[in-house]
């Protein structure tokens, strides 16, 4: 006991960590708890618990459609952003000196431009080229935003790749295409996978760009936003809880997979 108090910096470090965890999880747990409340308004104490709200949400056609639409957009965004991102990372990886830094800075720009600015400029852009708002416009906006994350993750892995792996493949008779698909791409695998998960989460979570570029069919964040405006109810808590669970599971699973491949 005395030893514990002597180590007060360590103790402070631990306490702050747990305070942070509390700060992180308290609002989330509250939200989850209320989703089981047996009343149509949000208040405490919870009283009787029910899963009626879940049953109701799962049968909600609008909710299901928004989910499907979100997943569809996320999948398309991921596919396109991954190809472009890997491509750009390979290009930057082959550059030398100042050109490399400039190319890298430009590739990263969309990740740091404020969402609102990016959304407005894209909206003006699609109007200028007569592209209607809707699915294509949303995917366009999401891809621009997602590419830098793929680039950074893939480039980091690419830089850790021993240079002579490519030499070895060439030496054993592979031309540059075969070398890319059989040696470089598998080596980048974990980073590409991580980047894809990131794309999925970024796209399905995006509100601002979707809001400016979307048509009448709402994605999940837009649906929740619309519902919140017409008043809070445990139904919203249920939707939010479902989103939380799904993203947490996907995120943790991705982390587990990349960790496993890193060990190899």
């Amino acid at each position: 006991m005395r030893a514990m108090f002597h180590d007060w910096p360590g103790l402070a470090l631990k306490s702050f960590y747990w305070l942070f965890v509390l700060y992180l999880f308290l609002p989330l747990s509250l939200m989850v708890a209320v989703s089981f409340k047996d009343a149509s308004f949000i208040s405490f104490p919870l009283g009787n618990l029910t899963i009626d709200w879940y049953a109701k949400v799962i049968q909600d056609k609008q909710f299901l459609d928004a989910c499907l639409y979100t997943i569809m957009i996320a999948a398309a965004t991921t596919a396109i952003a991954t190809v472009i991102g890997v491509w750009i990372a390979m290009l930057i990886g082959s550059l030398r000196g100042a050109t490399q830094y400039v190319a890298f800075a430009i590739a990263c720009l969309p990740a740091v431009v404020p969402g609102m600015i990016s959304a407005i400029s894209l909206r003006i852009f699609i109007t200028t080229i007569d592209l209607p708002t809707g699915t294509v416009a949303i995917i366009l906006g999401h891809v621009v935003h997602a590419v830098p994350f793929v680039v950074v993750m893939v480039l980091t892995r690419l830089r850790s790749m021993p240079g002579n792996l490519v030499d070895a493949a060439r030496d054993l008779g592979a031309d540059s295409t075969v070398t890319f698909f059989r040696v470089t791409l598998p080596y980048l695998g974990p980073a590409i996978f991580g980047g894809m998960i990131f794309c999925l989460l970024l796209s399905s979570d995006d509100f601002v760009r979707t809001f400016f570029l979307g048509g009448y069919r709402p994605t999940l964040p837009m649906l929740i936003f619309a519902r919140v405006q017409s008043g809070m109810s445990p139904e919203i808590n249920v939707m939010a809880t479902l989103v939380l669970v799904v993203t947490a599971v996907v995120g943790l699973y991705a982390e587990y997979l990349t960790r496993r491949s890193r060990i190899r």
């Binding site: 002579n164 792996l165 030499d167 070895a168 493949a169 054993l172 040696v183 598998p186 190899r264």
Partner: peptide
């Protein structure tokens, strides 16, 4: 064919 200094075996 070359045997490289740090082997350059394909890790995957």
């Amino acid at each position: 064919n070359i045997v490289f200094q740090d082997y350059a075996l394909f890790p995957h």
